[in-house]
């Protein structure tokens, strides 16, 4: 067991972890960030996606100790019910979800894409977002949500 400092959603948290503990467990069980959810456990489905220094990572494959000193973002830090991030707002407007177990991961992936590549084409969106699986099959409206966010971003 060792105590590490994780910077999550703009705040530093002291947390005690075991060497093999994943960032997923540290965020979910240690910090109570319930938007971070295990799906496949092997980095395939994207349900546990968080942004580390602005880039999407599978929290289930990331060791908590190795995330020390980096900036971690979950949807709790992206926006709140009172102040939604434009990406969250676009998903809300387009109903880009069903059961929403995968939604936080998809929103964060979309956020990273839009920040890095505001000129993304439809084909690039489809490709980039294919690391996040939605078993309910909401893909039409997920794509529509991200397109909406992109269009709003461009018009500002």
């Amino acid at each position: 067991m060792e105590t590490i400092t994780l910077r999550v959603n703009g705040r530093a948290h002291q947390i005690t972890v075991r060497g093999h503990q994943t960032l997923l467990d540290a965020l979910r069980d240690g910090l109570g960030l319930l938007s971070v959810r295990e799906g496949c456990g092997i980095g395939v489905c994207g349900a546990c996606t968080v942004l580390i220094d602005g880039r999407p990572f599978s929290a289930c494959l990331t060791l908590a100790a190795l995330a020390e000193g980096r900036e971690i973002l979950t949807v709790e830090g992206l926006g709140t019910a009172e102040h939604l991030d434009p990406v969250q707002d676009a998903f809300l407007a387009r109903t880009g979800f069903q059961c929403s177990y995968c939604t936080p991961g998809i929103i964060l992936t979309a956020k990273a894409l839009l920040d890095a590549c505001p000129d993304a084409t439809d084909e690039e969106l489809r490709e980039y977002l294919s690391g996040n699986l939605c078993r309910c099959g909401s893909y039409v409206k997920i794509l529509d949500s991200v397109r909406t966010a992109l269009a709003r971003l461009r018009s500002h």
């Binding site: 959810r37 709790e76 939604t103």
Partner: peptide, 25 residues
């Protein structure tokens, strides 16, 4: 924003990751 009705409330909880599942209990 003003959140109204079950549909919108659930939707906001979904995009903010706060909708409850048995997994959270």
């Amino acid at each position: 924003m003003v959140v109204r009705g079950v549909r919108e409330r659930d939707a906001v909880e979904k995009v903010t990751g706060q909708i409850p599942y048995a997994l959270n209990v």
